[in-house]
Amino acid sequence: MKIGVVIVTHYELGEQMLQALRSIITDAPEFYAVSITNQQSVDEMREAISKCLDQAEAGHGVLVLTDMFGGTPSNVALSFLGERELEVVTGVNLPMLIKLATLRNEKSLDDLASFIRDYGKRNISVASELVPERDT
């Protein structure tokens, strides 16, 4: 995929999600994770995110996935809007990462952001509604 992917989260949520992703999709493309902690200054957060954006950029922009709208990881990621070609989607979940890792068709950054937001929402379920009765 030509669009880079960076996950920015509270602590190591993103790292751990990438570990789970790689256990499921063993040939997943390289995504990057930034851990934001209470001990970092805003400048340090921006520097860590900037470094990952540089690594992830492949010429067509970067999709930044954060854990929660309004949280510091989201707010600091949003501060790069206008400075760089990126889009921020909040509320990252594992289905979104699996989908991004297995996408076959190319999309523009804007289209990808909308698509993956909708995909993430669609894959939040009340499980009993999907599996009304046990098979075994």
Binding site: I25, P95, K99, T102, L130, R134, D135, T136
Partner: peptide
């Protein structure tokens, strides 16, 4: 070709 689609089948052992 979709991991999530396959998971949605909720196929337990013996299915």
């Amino acid at each position: 070709a979709s991991v999530l689609s396959i998971l949605s089948l909720a196929a337990a052992q013996g299915t």
